[in-house]
Amino acid sequence: MLAKSMAIVWKDVVVEFRAKEILAAVLIFAALVALIFGFAFDPVEHDLTGIFPGLMWVAYFFAGTLGLNRSFITEKQNDALQGLVLAPGDRSAIFLGKFLANWLFMTLVELILTPVFFALLNVSFKGGLLLAAVLALATVGFTAAGTFLSGLAANTRASEVLLPILLFPLLVPVVIGAVRATAGAMAGDAATAVAWLRALAAYDAVFVVVPFLVFEYLLEG
């Protein structure tokens, strides 16, 4: 089963590497949001340190939703999803593969853009390893929930409008956890950061396991 998931991850990476359409779009959109935030909140006049975690995560979640939207739509063209369903192995492997690929893409985007955010919004870089842990864990929750809902929304006429509507209410715990943990990491308050990291880990566990179990039934026939 893991082999099937890994094959899907590999396929998505190769496709992305050749076409470069989703990753580039997500990257540029998130960077643009940083720019817009710069104009809207004026880092020259104000110290944005206090609201910086919120700004950064809003940008990542909104930009990431663009990428998640494409995750299953591309599979629907040419009935590729049908092929994945019929391929040997569990159907849940499709969820796992898609989720891992999305996590990889999103983490890459964040690794590139986090320094850019700090620089553009005039906030001195702090947090180090703790911040890296927050990025990793919050992105697991975001992409796991996002991948699952993207799979659901792909079957509708309005999938691209529907995904954010379905995703954001479910994402609230990640939003809270990511922002609080980032703030904690930046303030050097390790206890707070770790407490919220634990909450994020719990969310991650639920949103990886439950879709994994449900996916088996979703893609029948």
Partner: peptide, 21 residues
């Protein structure tokens, strides 16, 4: 089937949302 998937995950999320808020 898609709606049922959301019906499951949506409810599972409720206690987590409540705790985090």
């Amino acid at each position: 089937r898609m709606a049922a998937g959301l019906g499951v995950i949506g409810f599972v999320d409720v206690p987590i949302v409540h705790m985090s808020v």
